[in-house]
């Protein structure tokens, strides 16, 4: 499932965070989620799902759910 895989990627990118990742999780909720971490996460997601986000899509990512929806749309 796409959501589950993305949650796993987030946990892998921010391993020291003990927060439970949900669709509503934002970068503000995860201490480690800084600029470099964000880029690494996006890169990991693009590699995992063999997709590439465009700029407008990246700007729309306010919470994890937005990322999941964007990936689902691309995989359709």
């Amino acid at each position: 499932m796409i959501a589950h895989e993305i949650f796993t990627l987030i946990k892998d990118t921010f391993p020291n965070s003990d927060i439970t990742i949900t669709q509503n999780t934002t970068a503000n909720d995860v201490d480690e989620w800084d600029s470099l971490g964000h880029i690494m996460l996006i890169q990991a997601i693009e590699e995992k799902f063999k997709i590439e986000f465009d700029l407008d899509e990246l700007l729309e990512f306010n919470q994890v759910g937005d990322i999941i929806e964007a990936v689902k749309k691309k995989k359709e």
Partner: peptide
């Protein structure tokens, strides 16, 4: 901290 990437993306846009 959380503003870094949005600022960067808006600059690109």
């Amino acid at each position: 901290q959380k503003a870094a990437i949005p600022l960067f993306l808006k600059f690109l846009k």
